[in-house]
Design a binder for these strands. Structure first.
Lengths: 158, 158
DNA sequence: TGGGATATCATGGAGTCCTATGGGCGTCAA
DNA sequence: TTGACGCCCATAGGACTCCATGATATCCCA
């Protein structure tokens, strides 16, 4: 269970394609998922991506509600309806949809960031900020600023 | 076990036909259902659609009530009255009935929204509103401590 | 240990296939 | 007869397949 680890920056070509880092592809293959499951994270301006492990996490949340209830409906709309199922071509590339690109502000390059059971897709610029913010939070935590954060990037795992 | 995922907007042609998105058709084929089962959802102003998985969910829902009870009777009558069995033509298109179109306020375009075991058919306008509400609810879920974390970083979609 | 051979990977491009969409035509029923 | 419907074909644009290339990392053997 190695999961997605490390970060890689790749270029988007003229046809809108970008290579998924080989280690991530290997992990997806291990996971047995066909394609790449992606969902925008509006609060962070990034994209969550992964395979079965990510899907199962979302499905578990949805499964808490009665299948035909309003809650179930809203949750599955937000988590499944607003997500995208991308195909990975023979060369290991994906084509991000306009919706996803817009949600993450992506244009020419993307940074893939491993997060264990899933990974994120950022613009290099936003990831740099996000990373700096993450470090700041960890530092203030060290100074004993208060309760352990449960907010975005509360320290990442590993 | 991919289910219906993602959302697609297609046009209704002069003859009242509209293409079912290819990924959804593939899922219906996997599900082994011939045609498309549709049922209006008056409370939301949309249409639920799917194959065997949706049928079975409805059946289970009805089965919660005593077979000879009034509740069972009303519920099955209501559901049967609101449902339609549509044919999918050789080009992957359906023709929505007037009843269904009216229930969802459909005229020129429709948006198909995946929800796992089923999908919904909206007007693009109504879906935009519904989508905003769905995102709001997911956000408050995230902030409310209640839902289980989708990961150690808390940045997931809870 | 060094250097060449090999494998892997990201990237670019050409061509083919698929999909959504529009329209024609025959059939059946009102 | 007329309109709704099922079936067929046409097409433009996008999506996917396949092939080529350069760069980098890895391995093997002298």
């Amino acid at each position: 269970m190695s999961g997605f680890v490390g970060h890689f920056t790749n270029r988007i070509d003229a046809k809108g394609r970008v290579s998924v880092p080989a280690p991530f592809r290997a992990e997806l293959a291990r996971d047995g998922y066909d394609g790449l499951f992606c969902i925008a994270v509006p609060d962070l301006g990034t994209i969550d991506a992964g395979g079965n492990a990510l899907r199962e996490t979302l499905d578990r949340h949805i499964a808490q509600f009665e299948p035909l209830s309003f809650d179930h409906n809203y949750l599955s709309t937000a988590l499944l309806g607003l997500s995208e199922q991308l195909r990975i071509d023979a060369d290991g590339r994906i084509s991000l949809t306009d919706t996803l690109k817009e949600a993450a502000g992506i244009d020419a390059q993307v940074t893939f960031v491993g997060q264990g059971f899933k990974f994120q897709i950022w613009t290099p610029e936003r990831f740099a900020e996000h990373r700096a913010e993450a470090l700041r939070r960890v530092q203030s935590l060290r100074r004993g600023a208060g309760a352990p954060s449960s907010g975005p990037d509360g320290g990442g795992h590993t």
